[in-house]
């Protein structure tokens, strides 16, 4: 335990910690019988994998059993999109849906299977499909020097680094390989070995 400032000594610091500590404070608003579920900390990747697995299995069962399958409790078909402020006759957002094509296809299948009206807009917004698609704008092809960030008309064929002028090129050529790799990594263009 390191006292933060020169002004505080061991004793005052401990007193400060006692004051700040909320472990000792009684938290009567908490349910004393509350037991958090095991392994509830999941990262985004795990959660997304679970979601897509669940979706796939739900869709599969619906495809098999057709209209006789009870409607999903939270599917769009139930609310009919009435309370959902999703598009009023908007064309489907293809760029977004392309990010998660399976969702689009599956949703279309469900709708077809359940005879929902095609007037309903595109796929519902999910965490994955609202992600912005890759750029198609020519501006995204602009090149900047990896070292200085200035406009870079040249590329070094050996290291694949972009550079602004010959002085920077001289620097690039004297760089060890791990440095050039980390410069590439800053631009996301590094080689990833899998």
């Amino acid at each position: 335990m390191a006292p933060l400032t020169a002004a505080s000594d061991e004793k005052t610091h401990q007193a400060l910690l006692d004051k700040l500590d909320i472990y000792a404070i009684s938290k009567s608003f908490r349910n004393p019988h509350w037991k958090p579920p095991q392994r509830r900390n999941k990262n985004v990747k795990q959660i997304l994998a679970e979601v897509s697995r669940k979706e796939a299995s739900v869709m599969a069962t619906q495809n098999n059993s057709g209209a006789s399958t009870p409607v999903l409790p939270h599917s769009e078909a139930l609310t009919g999109g009435a309370s959902t402020p999703v598009g009023n006759h908007q064309p489907p957002n293809i760029a977004q849906a392309a990010r998660n094509l399976s969702t689009l296809v599956l949703e279309k299948n469900t709708r077809a299977a359940m005879g929902a009206s095609p007037a309903n807009g595109g796929p519902a917004a999910t965490y994955t499909n609202i992600e912005s698609a890759p750029s198609f704008h020519p501006n995204s092809q602009r090149r900047y020097c990896d070292i200085t960030g200035l406009p870079a008309p040249y590329t070094d064929p050996k290291t694949r680094l972009r550079y602004h002028n010959k002085e920077i090129f001289g620097v690039i050529r004297t760089m060890p390989q791990n440095t050039t790799e980390s410069y590439l990594a800053a631009r996301g263009a590094h080689t990833v070995l899998k």
Partner: peptide
């Protein structure tokens, strides 16, 4: 260079369109 990434995400290796394009 750093705030520019929101407008041009590719400069930081983010393969997405910038806010203006979106």
């Amino acid at each position: 260079r750093v705030p520019e990434v929101v407008f041009q995400p590719t400069i930081a290796g983010l393969d997405q369109a910038g806010i203006v394009e979106i």
